[in-house]
Amino acid sequence: MDSLVVLVLCLSCLLLLSLWRQSSGRGKLPPGPTPLPVIGNILQIGIKDISKSLTNLSKVYGPVFTLYFGLKPIVVLHGYEAVKEALIDLGEEFSGRGIFPLAERANRGFGIVFSNGKKWKEIRRFSLMTLRNFGMGKRSIEDRVQEEARCLVEELRKTKASPCDPTFILGCAPCNVICSIIFHKRFDYKDQQFLNLMEKLNENIKILSSPWIQICNNFSPIIDYFPGTHNKLLKNVAFMKSYILEKVKEHQESMDMNNPQDFIDCFLMKMEKEKHNQPSEFTIESLENTAVDLFGAGTETTSTTLRYALLLLLKHPEVTAKVQEEIERVIGRNRSPCMQDRSHMPYTDAVVHEVQRYIDLLPTSLPHAVTCDIKFRNYLIPKGTTILISLTSVLHDNKEFPNPEMFDPHHFLDEGGNFKKSKYFMPFSAGKRICVGEALAGMELFLFLTSILQNFNLKSLVDPKNLDTTPVVNGFASVPPFYQLCFIPV
């Protein structure tokens, strides 16, 4: 009986604490739906499609509103004006990374994606500088992407125009580009180590996009005490870190300090320079996690976009025909596509942009946080508050993009057929937390897609009208449904 009384008292205290925290903070924060004790607004949000729920709530509470995930307040920004004001106009104040408990377990605050403060700034600055020195957006990395595009075309030829699921092959190409940047090595598509790495990356994007992960991140005790797919994700990350550590040891034994070959060499050189400046942010643990982040951000996002792009091109054969006509006119058949071609191919450029806009790969991006107490639109948001960005509300804005739910390359073309930029184009987020590999991803999408369409016609196994382009999961990332196609050599 005594234990029951204690339990009831504990629960009562928890409920009172929950109510007090919510009521004391709500006077400062933007308005929002009334949260339930302990669980907050979790029942009012469709976990399978958070973005749709945010759109519905914005119609009631406006472009800036507050939700509670458990006891934790989260300020939501919906629509271009609110997102721009926060991420661009007040970029420094909104540059923090929001709480992501599962990532905390995986990387302990290291790396480039989930770190904060001085650690994040130094690692991000170093990573950007190193990638630029190796030619991100310049010639040397373009050579690597072109080489991988040629290998991709050869792998597709091996399908002999038979029906195939493109998931694996389209994942190999961007993964190999990242391998060449980090390890100075590309792998054969049949290499077992490479296959294991690909498998872990593919599993992780599916797990991260599941409703279960949303629950884990908002009720963090689940991570330590409950079984579930989150444990598989943590094991996959541990596998990748151990693999990278092996490569780091190989580099330490063979590195030429006067001739760095890749990202690992550059990081080890930085560690050597910083060894007298303790404590340094440049450690082996930081290198492991930064490399894992580059793999995660640079492989599955690009391969998922490529997979979605081919599905949309199957669905819209008239678009595919126009792209192939432009390829034939500008590039021809006797040389590989290059980035200089893009400025002469406005329709193809528009298609690449429209694919990214339409699929809305990361509907709410990753959570941000404010780095200080900030007054925002007459609300006071306390330091450390998590900020949720609705990228969907920007990419699918119906004023900027008429009929935003329709796939239409003319969203990025003017009346004369010239490519038209849009400030609403934010597939990689915006501001200080914009994806480090934005330029690389854009290069890969253009070169891989043009190389495929230069060499193959795409054949659907069903009537294009019957192809479903609805994402199968739409949590962290929008993942396309399973499909097969035939690559018919031109």
Rank of each mutant, 00 (worst) to 15 (best):
153 V>S: 03
87 L>V: 07
238 A>R: 09
301 T>V: 15
308 Y>E: 05
158 K>C: 08
477 A>P: 04
37 P>Q: 02
191 D>I: 00
5 V>E: 14
285 E>F: 04
416 G>L: 15
38 V>P: 15
316 H>Y: 10
285 E>Q: 07
122 E>N: 12
321 A>D: 13
439 A>V: 09
442 G>K: 12
151 C>R: 08
295 F>E: 01
343 S>P: 05
157 R>S: 09
109 G>E: 10
252 Q>V: 10
115 S>K: 08
107 N>Q: 04
386 T>G: 10
453 L>D: 00
376 F>G: 02
177 V>Q: 01
56 N>T: 14
288 E>L: 15
310 L>E: 00
326 E>Y: 01
79 G>E: 02
125 R>K: 15
362 L>P: 05
488 I>Y: 13
15 L>I: 10
406 M>H: 08
362 L>C: 08
190 K>L: 07
135 G>I: 11
292 V>H: 06
133 N>S: 14
431 G>I: 07
35 P>D: 01
455 N>E: 14
296 G>S: 13
221 P>E: 08
237 V>R: 14
195 L>R: 13
316 H>K: 05
202 N>Q: 11
229 T>G: 13
294 L>V: 05
472 V>C: 13
191 D>C: 07
298 G>I: 11
456 F>E: 00
383 K>R: 06
75 V>G: 00
410 H>G: 12
294 L>P: 01
15 L>F: 14
316 H>C: 04
57 L>P: 01
275 K>S: 13
301 T>G: 12
112 I>K: 14
171 G>F: 10
429 S>T: 05
231 N>L: 07
239 F>S: 13
222 I>A: 11
122 E>M: 09
99 I>A: 13
426 M>W: 08
270 K>L: 08
127 S>T: 15
33 P>W: 00
67 L>A: 06
422 S>G: 05
140 S>G: 11
205 I>Q: 09
343 S>R: 10
2 D>R: 02
374 I>R: 03
321 A>L: 11
329 R>W: 07
243 Y>E: 05
194 F>K: 01
437 G>S: 06
368 H>D: 03
487 F>R: 00
267 F>S: 04
145 V>Y: 00
93 E>Y: 13
102 L>M: 09
467 L>V: 10
286 S>W: 06
273 K>P: 05
108 R>P: 11
107 N>A: 08
403 N>H: 13
363 P>L: 05
13 C>K: 01
87 L>W: 03
206 K>T: 13
251 H>F: 03
12 S>K: 02
483 Y>K: 00
367 P>R: 04
483 Y>T: 03
475 G>Y: 10
352 V>E: 01
89 D>C: 08
483 Y>V: 02
22 Q>E: 14
446 F>T: 00
235 K>R: 14
214 Q>I: 09
230 H>Y: 10
468 D>Y: 04
74 I>C: 07
437 G>H: 04
87 L>C: 10
289 N>T: 10
214 Q>K: 11
487 F>S: 00
345 M>T: 02
79 G>T: 03
319 V>P: 03
104 E>Y: 11
438 E>G: 07
183 F>G: 04
485 L>Y: 01
181 I>V: 11
225 Y>S: 05
457 N>D: 12
398 N>Q: 15
345 M>E: 00
136 M>K: 15
124 R>N: 07
484 Q>I: 03
34 T>R: 12
424 Y>I: 06
169 I>K: 02
197 L>Q: 02
477 A>N: 14
321 A>S: 14
229 T>F: 09
423 K>A: 09
201 L>S: 05
475 G>P: 06
304 T>G: 08
356 Q>S: 08
486 C>R: 14
387 I>A: 05
63 P>A: 06
468 D>G: 06
41 N>R: 02
114 F>Q: 13
9 L>Q: 01
485 L>F: 01
449 L>T: 09
421 K>T: 12
336 S>V: 12
282 F>T: 03
73 P>H: 05
181 I>F: 11
32 G>P: 01
250 E>T: 07
94 F>H: 05
215 I>T: 03
9 L>S: 06
421 K>D: 15
70 G>M: 05
267 F>N: 05
352 V>A: 04
462 V>N: 07
341 D>R: 00
422 S>L: 05
372 C>P: 00
2 D>A: 11
299 T>S: 13
321 A>W: 10
251 H>T: 04
183 F>L: 08
476 F>S: 08
248 V>D: 02
260 P>R: 10
477 A>T: 09
383 K>W: 03
401 F>E: 03
367 P>G: 04
180 S>L: 04
339 M>P: 03
413 L>A: 03
181 I>T: 05
447 L>S: 05
342 R>E: 02
264 I>D: 05
47 I>T: 15
439 A>L: 06
384 G>K: 05
341 D>T: 02
133 N>L: 11
285 E>A: 05
395 L>G: 08
404 P>H: 06
285 E>W: 04
218 N>W: 09
150 R>P: 01
441 A>S: 06
306 L>I: 10
364 T>S: 11
65 F>S: 03
346 P>V: 05
86 A>R: 01
121 K>G: 10
306 L>C: 02
359 I>H: 05
424 Y>R: 09
249 K>V: 12
150 R>E: 14
428 F>A: 05
136 M>T: 10
307 R>Q: 05
485 L>M: 09
94 F>R: 02
224 D>T: 07
52 K>E: 08
319 V>A: 09
67 L>Q: 00
286 S>P: 02
99 I>T: 14
197 L>D: 01
455 N>H: 14
191 D>M: 01
118 K>S: 11
424 Y>V: 07
455 N>M: 05
324 Q>P: 01
77 L>A: 03
424 Y>A: 08
451 S>A: 10
287 L>S: 01
52 K>M: 10
256 D>K: 09
258 N>C: 11
328 E>D: 12
475 G>L: 10
459 K>Q: 12
259 N>F: 08
155 E>K: 01
173 A>L: 02
38 V>M: 10
396 H>L: 06
49 D>W: 01
242 S>N: 14
285 E>T: 11
316 H>E: 07
151 C>D: 03
